[in-house]
Design a protein around this nucleic acid. Structure first.
Length: 476
RNA sequence: GGCGACAUAGCCAAGUGGUAAGGCAGAGGACUGCAAAUCCUUUAUCCCCGGUUCGAGUCCGGGUGUCGCCUCCA
């Protein structure tokens, strides 16, 4: 046992529960990935970022996480888009899988352990459908196979949808051939020209929900500890996954269901019809991935958040504050190293070391409690203030303490990902040389020269700041 | 019609019984040759009405408002 107690909100029970592993220290996690028919939008990005962070946190807490995220590379949308573009479904998939990888990586979303594709698991899918048919949970209409929800007693348990109640809402045109309006396709007969596979029901392709059932079970050895996705997948997608999987195998499909809230624009959900869909590609030009991550993590993952450019700009400033702090700590440590201060370090700051320990605990407590990233971030800012005071208002600092603070930020970054990896535009020697020249000018009160050196470096991507311990610099 | 979420300062937002974290923006001040960075000060009848309690943003009841799902959707 690793002695960690993480609470998470389970959509299935509608309660916060303590995470209890099935196998010691392991988490099998499946997150519904993109249908690769287009660039992904910022709503998708929220889901990817949020569960990336949850995954990283579980790892940080000592769990061995197996993380699966699929690509849905065959469905109605894929077929439609491919024909619009005049390319094959396969070409379409390749194009947008590549785009996904680029955009996700830009956002700092780490690759899953496996990214299985629906089209590579047709055999598994057919097996499940056969099983369901054998057990009387599925029926054929022509070359289509449907799942019969009335024959599966638990239907609706995830979403709280009562199949009997649903007539009242009747917004769909009912396919009269189906036994129940909520019955859904497991297998669809191919129309001419569509991609298809041989099956016991003739040529066809999988329905929408079945690929996740089959890939989750295959890659996670039948034990899905955490199954996650966006809120709108609760119904029907995840409800149907449960029905298919539990119907076929008579055992619980997934233990904890996690759902990320919506990302809205102007208080409305993004949708094609409102024309307010914004892709990550469109943001790449003007915003940093760090700001986007920060924005996504600044509210609780289950709450709806409202996107705006001004929010993103606020996030940009906030993230910058933390980055500057970390750079400054590093700079100070660098200065102490090899100097006389190293041999005779500043006195230990006992009180402050204790504070760092408390901040660390607070950070963990926030994250343990259903991944409260907003609260966790606030801890980083509280410590930032104290550290700035320590750095700016004392002449000497205890390197051990600075290192402790730095480590804490690096650990937090390992989970949340808010620190920038900067490419050095200039060599250290050159910068130090310029700083020395500026110092000389300053001593001679030649402000014009001093300022022109500083301006020049600024142009070249280096920011200079004068402190008690001399001039520090950082890549800006 | 059924199910659900949310309502906290100018903006964003955390906080599930003990008189309100944090970020951004604004104002004033400190530091600085200037700047940058930073620090300090400053801004909340926690949507409304009842109730429970010694005590409620936090629990209960009733309103009002906003949004979402029930159809493809992250």
């Amino acid at each position: 046992m690793i002695g960690v107690e993480i609470k998470l909100f389970n959509t299935l029970t509608r309660r916060k529960e303590t995470y209890v592993p099935t196998v010691e220290e392991k988490v099998n996690m499946y997150v519904c990935g993109p249908t690769v028919y287009d660039y992904f939008h910022i709503g998708n990005a929220r889901v990817f970022i949020v569960f990336d962070v949850i995954r990283r946190y579980l790892q940080y807490r000592g769990y061995r996480v197996k993380y699966i995220q699929n690509y849905t590379d065959i469905d109605d949308k894929m077929i439609k888009r491919a024909s619009e573009e005049g390319i094959s479904v396969k070409e379409l998939a390749e194009k947008f899988i590549k785009a996904y990888q680029e955009d996700a990586s830009w956002l700092g979303v780490r690759p899953a352990d496996f990214h299985p594709r629906a089209t590579e698991h047709i055999g598994d899918i057919i097996e499940i459908v056969k099983k369901l048919e054998k057990k009387g949970l599925a029926y054929r209409i022509g070359g289509d196979v449907y799942f019969s929800i009335k024959d599966f007693p638990g239907y609706g348990k995830l979403s709280g949808q009562d199949p009997e109640e649903r007539e009242a809402g009747a917004r769909v045109e009912v396919d009269l051939k189906k036994k129940h309006p909520m019955d859904f396709a497991l297998w669809k007969a191919a129309k001419p020209g569509e991609p298809c596979w041989e099956s016991p029901w003739g040529k066809g392709r999988p329905g929408w929900h079945i690929e996740c059932s089959s890939m989750a079970m295959r890659y996670l050895d039948g034990v899905v500890d955490i199954h996650a996705g966006g809120q709108d997948l609760i119904f029907p997608h995840h409800e149907n996954e449960i029905a298919q999987s539990e119907g076929a195998y008579d055992r619980s499909f997934a233990r904890y269901w996690l759902h990320a809230g919506y990302l809205n624009i102007n208080e409305k959900k993004m949708s094609k019809s409102l024309g307010n869909v914004l892709t990550i590609r469109e943001l790449k030009e003007n915003y940093s991935p760090l700001a986007i991550r920060y924005f996504m993590l600044s509210a609780h993952y289950r709450h709806p958040i409202n996107f705006s450019y001004s929010q993103l700009e606020q996030a940009e400033s906030a993230v910058k504050r933390l980055n500057i702090l970390v750079e400054n700590i590093k700079d100070r440590l660098q200065r102490i190293k090899g100097s006389s201060e190293e041999a005779h370090p500043a006195p230990e700051e006992r009180g402050m070391s204790l504070r760092v320990e408390q901040f660390r605990k607070k950070f963990l407590a926030a994250m343990d409690d259903d991944f409260n990233t907003a609260d966790a971030l606030s801890v980083l800012f509280e410590l930032a203030r104290e550290t700035n005071i320590y750095l700016d208002h004392k002449e000497r600092q205890d390197p051990a303490l600075l290192q402790d603070i730095l480590s804490f930020y690096q650990e937090a970054n390992e989970v949340l990902g808010f620190l920038e990896q900067k490419e050095a535009p200039l060599t250290t020697d050159y910068i130090e040389e310029m700083i020395a020249r500026r110092e000389k000018a300053r001593r001679e009160r030649d402000w014009a020269t001093a300022d022109s050196i500083r301006d020049k470096l600024k142009e070249q991507g280096v920011t200079l700041e004068d402190t008690l311990q001399g001039t520090r610099w950082r890549f800006s």
